[in-house]
């Protein structure tokens, strides 16, 4: 089932949850805002969540409140947009989509909030003139060789346009 909104589309497998939303960018260029060089709309970011499990309401952009619910076979994919100006920075310099992911890419220490058994990976990139972080969390490091190929299949369907 294809989900498409705000320049991001993804094929969501049966039984998975997904949500593409937009909220004010907490890391917006406040100085530019103050000088009125950018509008409030320009300082909003898009976030996409795709998960093997029911996405709880009120979760954090990086999955806080959701990853805690993951079982060992679960995965959460987060595509988090930063301000377009970030594309000029070294962190977001790669214009290659950062997938497929490899099981060895995952590390318990890359979790936004480390939880026993879980692992995560973060990759920063730009696409369509937009700056993004891909963050993937898995519920069980011991299952990563079976879970990550499924994650990669979904990532292959992600399309980002300006």
């Amino acid at each position: 089932m294809k989900l498409e909104a705000r320049g991001i589309s993804v094929d969501v497998p049966a039984g998975w949850d997904a949500n593409i939303y937009q909220r004010p960018d907490p890391f917006a260029r406040l100085e530019l805002r103050r000088l009125e060089q950018v509008s409030a709309e320009e300082t909003r970011h898009v976030v996409a969540h795709i998960a093997t499990f029911p996405l709880p309401e009120g979760r954090g952009d990086y999955g806080g409140g959701a990853v805690e619910l993951m079982g060992p076979d679960d995965a959460l994919i987060v595509i988090f947009e930063y301000h377009p100006d970030s594309t000029a920075t070294a962190l977001f310099s790669s214009d290659q989509l950062p997938w497929p992911l490899h099981p060895n890419d995952f590390d318990p220490n890359q979790m936004q909030r480390p939880l026993p058994g879980q692992g995560g990976v973060q990759r920063f990139f730009q696409a369509g003139g937009r700056a993004f972080c891909l963050y993937v969390a898995i519920g069980g490091m011991s299952n990563r060789t079976t879970v990550i190929p499924i994650v990669n299949e979904i990532l292959e369907t992600v399309n980002i346009v300006a």
Binding site: E4, A14, G15, W16, N19, P54
Partner: peptide, 15 residues
């Protein structure tokens, strides 16, 4: 959703 976001709710195949 009522916040204007787009959503898919997984039902078939969920555990």
């Amino acid at each position: 959703k009522a916040d204007g976001s787009a959503a898919v709710v997984g039902i078939v195949g969920a555990d």
